[in-house]
Simulated scan of single mutants.
Amino acid sequence: MRRKGITLVELLVVMVIVALSAGGIFFAYRSLVKETIRQSLFAKNEQDVEVLLTSLRKDINGMGFGVPVDRLNVGTPACDGLTAFSGSNSVVGLALNCPSGGDELYFLNLATRSLRNSGCWWVRDGSGNVATEGRRWTLEDCPNSPPAGENLICLDVASKAIANCNSPNTLIFTMGDRTSIGDFAVRYYLSNTNLPRECAPGTFNLLKQVNGDAVAQPIASCVAVFRVRYFDGQSYDATIGDINNLRAIRLCLLMQVGGRMDTQMDPPNGFEQCGNIVINPEWRWYRWKLVEEDIPLRNIRR
């Protein structure tokens, strides 16, 4: 006799198969979404690293911009010593192994503030004619002449000593509404205050502090290591005797990219020129970007 319909056992078997298939599809979809989010976060963080490096290159490359010759010296600032550095006769200095969590970089650069005409400068030639040089920090063209109402600092073309702004053969720089060159002193340093939750244990925020400002500017988060060295064209060191031998600043950073991973991987354990890295065991659950590059200096020759 031919049976019609299906039995309860057959129905249960079909339901189990469907449930298992649906569960497999769900977990596969969840894993795909999770991996997509992780990869998206990784790509975003890689872009953030490049944005950070572009900002650092611009700021450090301009070290000595608009600085008179009597301040073109290498200093030895103390940790958390921006105020003292701003009043010294130095244009650059390093404080090593600070309690804040790493090295601290100090320097002077009249283009470091985001004033309207930051980055602009002018040349008054031997006949008294003024020509515009540089570009605004916004990449706009500079005014044809030094802007009225802004404070200026002028240097003799040959000696780089302070000069009268109306004298021929003069370099002219603007300080905006600032009155002291010490207001353009900068400190880069690490701090673990207000660290985002997604950062690995033992990491820091990289901050930029400009003398006279009440609040430091956050530059990057989840930075494990920040070290700086001088380069004289042959070797890298934390000290340098003659500033005329200083060719570049070596930046060494270890930065987290992306959030915590499901699998472990060994982070980099050292820099080529900035020494070894003490690895926190928790760092193996995160992805890292090792940055080590020379930033050339063009404005610090006597």
Rank of each mutant, 00 (worst) to 15 (best):
K160R: 13
N151E: 12
I162W: 09
S180A: 07
T203V: 06
A220H: 00
G212F: 02
V186T: 10
A185R: 09
P147H: 06
L155I: 06
P143Y: 07
P201F: 00
N151V: 09
C222V: 03
L206N: 02
V210K: 01
S145P: 06
I181E: 14
N211P: 07
A161F: 05
C165S: 12
I219M: 02
I153F: 13
A220G: 02
V215D: 03
L190N: 12
M175L: 09
A216N: 00
A200I: 04
G202Y: 06
A214H: 02
A158D: 13
G212S: 03
P201Y: 02
N211K: 04
T174K: 10
Y189G: 09
G212H: 00
P196E: 05
S167F: 09
C154G: 03
S167V: 06
V186I: 14
S191E: 15
S145K: 05
A185V: 05
L190P: 11
F173I: 11
L171A: 14
S145A: 12
G176P: 03
F226I: 04
G202K: 04
D156C: 07
G176I: 10
R197A: 13
K208A: 00
Y188Q: 08
P146D: 07
L195E: 04
P218Y: 02
N164D: 15
F173M: 08
A220W: 00
P168Q: 11
F173L: 13
S167D: 13
L207I: 02
V223Y: 01
A148L: 08
D177K: 10
P143C: 06
I181S: 12
D213E: 10
L206D: 02
C154H: 04
L195V: 04
Q209H: 06
T179Y: 15
L152C: 14
A220V: 00
E198L: 08
S159T: 15
L155E: 08
N144T: 08
I181Y: 11
M175S: 11
A216R: 01
L155G: 14
C199D: 01
N194P: 07
I162Y: 11
S167G: 09
P168H: 14
M175T: 10
P146V: 11
V157C: 08
K208G: 00
C165A: 13
N211H: 11
P147K: 01
A163F: 09
T174C: 05
T179L: 15
L155T: 12
E150L: 11
L171F: 15
F184G: 07
I172C: 13
I172P: 15
P146G: 10
F226P: 01
N192W: 05
R178P: 10
D213F: 03
E150V: 09
S180L: 08
S159H: 13
N211V: 03
T193A: 11
L152H: 13
A163C: 11
P168I: 13
Q209P: 02
V225I: 11
A220D: 00
V157Q: 13
